[in-house]
Design a protein around this nucleic acid. Structure first.
Lengths: 162, 162
DNA sequence: ACACTATTGCAAATAATTTGCGTTAGTGTA
DNA sequence: TACACTAACGCAAATTATTTGCAATAGTGT
């Protein structure tokens, strides 16, 4: 069960438009009703800097400066942030959840290497139109909120090795 | 680590073409180098009859007639069958692996209801062209083997409840 | 400075998945 | 059909991922 913060203001702090360079994490957290803690700030900074989806383990290992927050805290934070919409949960086929920071990057997908697990980020997603189309055909569904799409293949490096 | 069977013949027993109505599971297993056991046959039959992706738990519960195989056996079988290509592993966003029988159905995707978890199967996938396109742009990848695509939304029933 | 409660750490509980190992049972061959 | 070989299975135990309870700590608004 996820404890919901009281939403004072529910306005995302997105810079709007395509030039979302940097985001004031403190303001972002506040605008979502979260308290601004060192842990949350560092978590967002780490996720943003990583640029690639991270598992809880990854986050804990990459944590710098201070001691990493407890794993339970990381799970709680990431889940809350995901519900709030500034972090996306992604399945890379590894069986463990990975999280990606979304405010500064447009919606996109990935290719994962079956050999070494390398992840490459793909350009803009072109599935929005498809969603509308699907809803016309669907018997049971009247709305689509999101989708997950990941490709699996072999990266150049692994292709050479084999 | 997955124990690989010795592949006597590595020819899939697919009926070829689009009219893959029923498949002789025994022959299919044999052609993939697996032994034909009652457990495997029942597993394939169950998966095919279900028509929807099942978790290991689901399989165990739906098992009929004889006592369900041990969970460890189910995991081993499903993983082997997945590697062999006649079962696909799917992520429905639940955090647990689901498996779907593929020989008799064309490649497709699903919509999952965020409310009740209902799964609807979508018509034919239209992403094949996109894969080729992606490979042109990709820096690190030269081949794509597969992809996962699932949509999440709200089904009519849940839309009414709320 | 103070009260209120979200957030965190720590330990313990669940759940999912994997692994080791001895036994059982398909398969090919004599 | 009997026999040897080894995949497949059951069972118990080990891992790994994720969640939950609870008391202590620390942001926030007043």
């Amino acid at each position: 069960m996820i404890k919901k913060p009281s939403f004072h203001e529910h306005t995302h702090a997105h810079t709007g438009g395509g030039s979302a360079a940097t985001v004031d994490s403190a303001a972002l957290l506040r605008s979502l009703g979260f308290r601004v803690t060192p842990g949350r700030l560092a978590l967002l900074a780490l996720l943003e800097a990583a640029g690639t989806p991270l598992s809880v383990q990854d986050v804990s290992k990459k944590w710098q400066g201070t001691k990493s927050p407890d794993i339970a805290t990381l799970y709680r934070s990431l889940t809350d942030l995901q519900v709030a919409g500034i972090v996306q949960r992604i399945d890379l086929g590894t069986g463990t959840a990975h999280f990606e920071y979304t405010p500064t990057r447009p919606h996109h997908h990935h290719i994962i290497c079956n050999g070494c697990g390398a992840v490459e980020e793909l350009e803009h997603c072109t599935l929005v139109g498809l969603e509308d189309q699907l809803l016309i055909t669907s018997r049971q569904f009247k709305s689509i909120y999101s989708h997950n799409l990941e490709f699996f293949g072999q990266c150049t490096r692994c292709a050479i090795k084999k």
